[in-house]
């Protein structure tokens, strides 16, 4: 399965969830690309070049920090360009900002707060909790060739080890940001 990870960064640092997503992706296959959406993606790319990452896709945008619409549009264009089987996003406040919107718009499979998954033949089966974490459930995605999963932080350990990822870049067209960061 090909996996696209959307790197998360804050105040100039890649957040641990990104490397946790790399560990999660290792369970799905060898084809893992990490997209870094930033004003200066090159400055962050080194931080995600860990073992298990095959490709780092730099996506240059005007914004230094996270803005919802920018990610919505950039990730949509990444998905269209890369055609991943699985998109992994952190179950974080940034992820909540754009990932459900994108999954709804694209009509792809979706589950959030996922803390485990496995392949069952060609199918992907994810595990998440319900009812205040009192029960767990296996969820499946019948009829979907593409699935976006939001992954619970700390469910996987952060990936480490030197990487040898190929560098790539994708030009994206952002039509505008309707929710602008004005201060931190």
């Amino acid at each position: 399965m090909s996996v696209l990870i959307v790197a998360e960064h804050l105040r100039g640092q890649v957040r641990p969830i990104t490397l946790e997503l790399v560990s999660a992706a290792k369970e799905l296959g060898e084809e893992t690309a990490v997209a870094v959406i930033a004003k200066d993606p090159a400055a962050l790319a080194d931080q995600v070049d860990v073992e298990g990452v095959k490709e780092i896709v730099s996506v240059k945008v005007e914004q230094d920090d996270f803005e919802n619409d920018v990610y919505r549009e950039a990730v949509e264009q990444l998905i269209s360009d890369r055609s991943p089987d699985v998109v992994l996003v952190g179950f974080t406040v940034n992820g909540m900002g754009y990932a459900p919107a994108l999954a709804a718009k694209l009509g792809i499979g979706f589950a959030s707060d996922v803390f485990a998954f496995r392949r069952d033949g060609d199918d992907l089966v994810a595990e998440r909790s319900f009812y205040g974490s009192k029960v767990n459930a296996e969820v499946e995605f019948p009829g979907h060739d593409r699935v976006l999963l939001m992954i619970r932080p700390t469910a996987w350990p952060p990936a480490e080890g030197d990487g040898a990822a190929v560098e790539a870049k994708l030009d994206v067209a952002i039509t505008g940001s309707r929710a602008i960061l004005i201060s931190t």
Binding site: A103, A104, I108, G109, F110, A111, V125, A126, S129, F130, S133, K134, V135, N136, A137, E138, V139, E140, F141, P142, H144
Partner: peptide
Amino acid sequence: ASHVRKMFVP
């Protein structure tokens, strides 16, 4: 977007 296959006590 997803379908519960099975629920169980963790």
